[in-house]
Nucleic acid binder design. Structure first.
Lengths: 234, 234
DNA sequence: ACCTGAACACCGTTCAAGT
DNA sequence: ACCTGAACACCGTTCAAGT
């Protein structure tokens, strides 16, 4: 990727960039999920032969992991990084921004869920979460475990949300998603799974984002219980 | 699937069963993840022509979702279902059994993560979690949100664990996985991501199961804070 | 150095035909 | 009713060739 920049160029000039390829890949992923983003499809979209893609990325997996990195990099960190804010607000902001970014690209969620989280943006994110939890007053051991808990919850709930959708495409609006879940459960299953049906009905009274935040704050409550002297900052 | 059983049979007899196909699919998934379990590969493994599979399942997606259902059905519910046990122990047991089942089939985790959770076993599981939380003293609204939180955490942490592995195959033993994470972070990145490196070192002092349980119990602590009169049962 | 056409070894799925 | 061979429309990736 880098070694061609500095040297004296010879031969043909590059006709496109890594970013243009990622743009094409993201469009296809948005439209139909990972399976819809074939190397051939990407190449067609940017107007080159399929094998030209291999000049920019070693293989398809590299395209996908670069795409995941870019999506993580586009998450808004403003409030999260602001150390003058109360820490609960900072965590909440990050959780919401991450969720929003993934909700904007539901087709990419399967990629994110199963990606190794070892790119620079992923590591930077983890680093900042640890920083924040240390700021909040946790010792380094608790901060490490708490950040794991936090990230697992955020990713898990996003995965659950996407999994309910029939097929990639775009995520229907919250109200429709809730109605759908309600419908699916209450139609014929209420007698077999009464509690689940009741739960769906209850949850339908709240918008899903509130449920997400409820879980987040219960989780933060739990983290605080181990370090009783952490100021709550609520 | 069912309609052929009751009628008078005519024509050729079935040469295999849905279960045999799922066995073959699971073997391939265990060996190389979802992408290694092709319809053609499954057919070859049970000794039929590729298209014979379509007599048993309408398409490949149906094979995968039946496989997910079976894996969920094989989770041990004994302690979890035992209402004489303290509720914390019951939740812990379920969380550990689920984790163990998925750790035994890491290649299947991507399937589980992105599956809609609408099969009978998935619903039954959700139903029992709600039952348990209600038993514990939560009202139905809190039980609904708490079960969502719980399930999101379990799935998310399992996803994170699997995502770190280079390629499907079998999950290396915990000690090796921890060492690997430690190595990956501390090698050259310690100066750029000091907190992450320190966190990896700290966590390496614990086995990963303990970290998982730590998160689970913090989460339960947090759930309790909303319903102050729930007996803790620890 | 980058791009191309052609090829290789695969896919999931369908269809007409056999028993 | 179930299974088969053959085919269709795809894949990701490689390789030799052009500029």
């Amino acid at each position: 990727m880098l070694e061609s920049t500095g040297r004296g160029r010879r031969g043909r000039r590059r006709i496109l960039s890594e970013d243009e390829i990622l743009d094409a890949a993201l469009t296809l992923v948005d439209e139909g999920g990972p399976s819809a983003a074939s190397v051939r499809g990407i190449a067609a979209r940017v107007g080159v032969a399929p094998n030209a893609v291999y000049t920019y990325f070693p293989d398809k997996a590299a395209v996908f992991s670069a795409l995941v990195e870019r999506l993580l990099g586009d998450v808004n960190h403003d409030v999260f990084a602001d150390r003058t804010q109360p820490w609960r607000r900072r965590v909440e902001s990050l959780a919401l921004e991450l969720r929003q970014q993934l909700a904007a690209h539901p087709g990419a969620v399967p990629l994110l869920i199963s990606s190794p989280m070892n790119g620079p943006h992923a590591l930077a994110l983890n680093e900042r979460v640890l920083e924040l939890l240390t700021d909040a007053g946790l010792d380094s051991a608790d901060a490490a475990r708490a950040s794991y808990l936090l990230i697992a919850y955020v990713f898990g709930s996003i995965a659950l949300e996407i999994a309910g959708v029939d097929k990639p495409g775009s995520l229907p609006p919250e109200t429709e998603r809730i109605a759908g879940r309600h419908r699916a459960l209450s139609t014929a299953l209420a007698d077999r799974y009464p509690l689940s049906a009741a739960a769906a009905a209850t949850v339908a009274g709240y918008i899903s984002t509130e449920q997400y935040l409820w879980g987040l704050h219960r989780l933060l409550d739990g983290i605080i219980t181990t370090s009783p002297h952490v100021p709550d900052s609520r």
